[in-house]
């Protein structure tokens, strides 16, 4: 670490990086797949500047990346082919190629304006997780979604609303506040609408469970004879099914433990062994099998790492005195 009391100023470095980019671009040396070392071979002076200092290199990479990103704007080009007006001040005959380029330029400006005024239907994006995977997705509006194991969603944002469809599985939503654009979740039997808050939604075979940790959530059920809607506050868990809504004030602690999967943990509190096994089986390829009803009814408590089913089995053996039989794909628990 150097002992200078001042930092190098970024301003001249950025200026130089931008100048180099413009100069290389002028000579047609910048292709989308250019790499810096090859560029440096083309121009010795550039190589000297680039390799003089890491700050030079990162500043140039920043400009180069920006310039490459800007090329994605080419999709705005298109539409009509008839030029209305040209900028050119020379005789039209001079160069066919140049005239063709200018024609494109004029068309481009008009289509940019059209693009700007037309609200587009958003293309939904699909996100999925495999069995046992947990994945975090940062959305552009600042919202963060955490997908639990075996989950499938689509995300579609427009100027008016933010829409997520939950096809299966479980998602924790940390929704960035935007009072102009409600955030809606469609999970089959249940719909959720919020403006900005944190909560988990799980779609099950029968119904949808919503656990709220922060803010206010609107939950409603659909496709049912009995339609209803309810406001959920922090600490509440709501269940939506075709038969109606059930809301429990479970407390923040319960909600928090309900959402522990985000840290790769499961918490049980007087939970029957059958339920605990079912939870483990959502995440692991080695299945926990409960041999008989009496064993399944035993209630357990504690926090366990979600992916260590073997540790859980050992605990059942030592702590509960159960018999444990291991085979290649499953672990069977039974009373002795």
């Amino acid at each position: 670490m150097n002992a200078e009391s001042r930092l190098a100023s970024a301003e001249p470095v950025e200026q130089a990086a931008a100048n180099w980019l413009a100069q290389l671009d002028r000579h047609g040396l910048l292709a989308a797949d250019s790499d810096l070392d090859r560029l440096a071979e083309e121009d010795r002076e550039f190589a000297n500047w680039l390799n003089k200092n890491t700050a030079h290199r990162v500043a140039f990479l920043r400009m180069f990346s920006t310039w490459r990103r800007a090329e994605r704007l080419t999709v705005l080009r298109g539409g009509e082919t008839t030029p209305r007006r040209t900028f050119i001040r020379r005789p039209v005959v001079q160069a066919l190629a140049a005239a063709a380029c200018v024609a494109m330029a004029v068309v481009g400006f008009t289509s940019l304006e059209v693009f700007g005024s037309r609200p587009e239907a958003p293309a939904p994006l699909r996100y999925q997780t495999a069995h046992g995977d947990i994945r975090t997705i940062n959305l552009k509006d600042g919202s963060v979604l955490t997908l639990n194991t075996d989950t499938s969603i689509t995300v579609a944002f427009s100027e008016q609303e933010r829409q997520v469809d939950l096809f299966k599985g479980e998602v924790f939503f940390d929704v960035a506040p935007d009072s102009d654009r409600p955030f809606r979740i469609d999970a089959g039997d249940g719909q959720v609408e919020v403006l900005g808050t944190s909560f988990g939604v799980e779609r099950r075979e029968a119904g949808v469970e919503v656990a709220v940790s922060v803010g206010t959530v609107w939950l409603s059920n659909t496709g049912a004879a009995k339609q209803s809607a309810s406001v959920l506050k922090p600490g509440m868990i709501g269940y939506a099914s075709p038969d109606g809504l059930i809301v429990e004030s479970s407390g923040l602690e319960t909600v928090t433990s309900r959402l522990l999967w985000r840290d790769g943990r499961l918490r049980f509190d007087n939970t029957p062994l059958t339920e605990a096994a079912a939870e483990f089986n959502r995440y692991n390829s080695t299945r926990l099998v409960i041999a008989d009803e009496a064993t399944g009814a035993i209630e357990i408590g504690g926090t366990f790492p979600v992916d260590n089913v073997e540790a859980f089995a050992r605990l059942a053996e030592d702590g509960l005195g159960l018999e444990v039989r291991y085979s290649s794909r499953q672990i069977e628990l039974s009373s002795k």
Partner: peptide, 29 residues
Amino acid sequence: HMRRIQGLSQRETARALGVSEPTVERHVS
């Protein structure tokens, strides 16, 4: 816009706008 969206070279851009190439380069920078 001309350079990135239309894919004109700097030289073609300069010609189209009736300005010098160094001017275009400066604007690109």
